[in-house]
Simulated scan of single mutants.
Amino acid sequence: MLLTLLAFVLVLGVLIFVHELGHFLAAKAVGIAVPRFSIGLGPPTPLRFRRGETEYQVAWIPFGGYVKMASREEQELMGALEGGATEEGFPPHRLFESKPLAARILVIGAGVIMNALFAWLAYGALLATYGEPQDPTTAIARVEASRLPAGAEVLAELPAGSRVMAVDGQPVKTWEELVRAIRAGRGALRLDLEGREPLVVPAADRRARRAVAGALVPLWPPEIGLVV
């Protein structure tokens, strides 16, 4: 339980950091002064330091964070959740409200943009490390007859568990390969089945082949996931 809670706080902290970093970088890019960058809300912990005009800190409440930008309005409204007001004075041209509308929109939206970029990079890294998940089956559990194109009704008669060995003469070993081969071919579709005669379906165009691929449902062998 404790480990789960710590993992949750850690992941949440990373997401908050990335989000607030987007606001921070955008504010700096358009010339807005940033007196405080905080991961967490409320009073600061001893984990804090100052570099230049900005104070960097970790606060005690881990469910949030903020980038305090120089603004007359914020100085008046800063509450305890954001550590109170700061004492630094900045020239008018460094204040948030002094910037053009486009710059303010960029700063406000930068957090979401940074989260999206982070998700894309994280997914790309996982894909590069572990590869694309492959479904290691070519057995058909059932065929959804209502989705079959005209002329392909014979596929609905396939018994459950029919295993496809090749599509149009091309061997297939995973469900992804099977679907890609069906969609990529042209003309009549030939399915080589284990222990059965080849099945030829007059799916002449790409649309019909996509419909056939969408009508097939894979059969997954039963597995024991966990014994407690």
Rank of each mutant, 00 (worst) to 15 (best):
A70F: 05
K173V: 11
T86M: 10
H23Q: 09
P44F: 01
L15W: 13
G22F: 08
V200F: 05
V200A: 09
L21W: 15
W120K: 10
E197Y: 08
D192E: 11
R48V: 01
V154W: 01
R186D: 12
L3G: 09
A29Y: 01
P92H: 05
E88S: 07
L10K: 06
V154A: 15
R36S: 06
G83E: 13
P100W: 12
R48H: 03
E177C: 02
L155N: 10
R207T: 14
V154C: 06
T54F: 07
Q134T: 05
I61Y: 05
A29D: 01
G65C: 04
V154E: 13
I113L: 15
P222W: 12
Q57H: 06
G89N: 14
H93V: 14
E132F: 13
T137N: 06
A80V: 12
R190I: 04
F63K: 07
L81S: 14
V11A: 13
I61C: 04
G161W: 07
G79C: 12
T137F: 03
L6N: 02
L95E: 04
V67T: 13
E197M: 10
L216N: 00
F96Q: 04
G151L: 08
R50F: 07
P222V: 12
V107T: 08
F17V: 12
R36P: 05
L219Y: 05
H19L: 05
L117Q: 05
A70G: 06
P46E: 13
W220I: 09
G31M: 00
F37E: 01
